[in-house]
């Protein structure tokens, strides 16, 4: 039977009887190239596997090996880059982050307005969500300066905005404590000529204070006392006139 070859419109020639000739007739040079290529493929697959598994958790040895492969993985975008390769787990950090601005320096709950992004599609919404989730994570790690740098472009086009905050929207899987948690980030916008600075208002945080047993305390020893730095507290003159250090918490 003749070896019929048909060239299709996709520039690939189809061999209808034997799609692949036996590799016995390859030259030593070709064989060497193929061996190197297969070796590369095995290493490539191993490195990709490690990168995808990194968010789940890797032993330290693999973690160090992966550090050497980062130039390859980042330049080619083959790695997961720390992003988890999985379906959602219903965790708090997967909840929707909403960015709100207010024209009031000391806004009430009803003064906050969501930023209108327009109708840009699901993929654009996912991108925004990734960005603000990362910003929320930074805020939770008290990296307020970095959060301020990320949010500043949002404010520059809104001269009427006096305050900005990021809140987590409750889900069916969040509990009552999470639903009533303070904003992830809240800041006063301070403008000076062309310069925009954000003065962070720290959220409520419980602080354990060691109390001497002999000391007279109205609440008794070992009490857990919330400091007076809730987001709803009134701004003090210290807030207003302290140098607008970007992203740093204003001392109460």
């Amino acid at each position: 039977m003749p070896n019929r070859r048909k060239k299709n419109r996709f520039n690939v020639t189809e061999n209808r009887t034997e799609p692949e000739p036996p590799s016995a007739d390859v030259t030593p040079r070709q064989r060497r190239i193929r061996r190197v290529t297969v070796g590369f493929a095995v290493v490539h697959l191993a490195v990709c596997t490690l990168s995808l598994m990194q968010p789940i958790g890797l032993p330290e040895t693999f973690d160090q090996a992966l550090a050497y492969a980062q130039p390859y993985l980042r330049a080619t975008r083959f790695g997961a880059d720390g992003k988890p390769a999985r379906l959602p787990h219903g965790r708090l950090d997967e909840a929707e982050i909403r960015v709100q601005v207010s024209g009031e320096a000391e806004p009430a709950e009803s003064d906050w307005l969501d930023i209108d992004w327009g109708s840009t599609g699901v993929e654009a919404t996912n991108r925004r969500q990734r960005f603000f989730s990362a910003a929320a994570t930074l805020a939770e790690n008290e990296q307020y300066g970095l959060v301020a740098r990320w949010l500043r472009p949002l404010i520059s086009g809104r001269p009427e905005a006096e305050s900005i905050r990021m809140v987590r929207v409750p889900t069916l899987l969040s509990d009552v404590v999470q639903d009533n948690a303070p904003p992830v980030y809240q800041a006063r916008i301070l403008r000076r000529q062309d310069e925009i600075n954000l003065a962070n208002l720290q959220p409520t945080r419980l602080v354990a204070i060691a109390v001497d047993e002999d000391a007279s305390s109205p609440s008794g020893g070992g009490d857990t006392t919330p400091p007076d730095d809730s987001p709803n507290r009134k701004a003090t003159p210290t807030d207003r006139f302290s140098p607008p250090t970007e992203g740093r918490a204003v001392a109460p």
């Binding site: 596997t49 390769a85 999985r86 379906l87 929207v169």
Partner: peptide
């Protein structure tokens, strides 16, 4: 890895995984 990472979460064992997927 996707399957292993997914099954690493409690919601995919207690029946709430589909809800977690549909949220937010």
């Amino acid at each position: 890895v996707f399957a292993a990472g997914t099954l690493n979460g409690d919601v995919w064992w207690n029946g709430l995984g589909a809800v977690a997927l549909a949220e937010p």
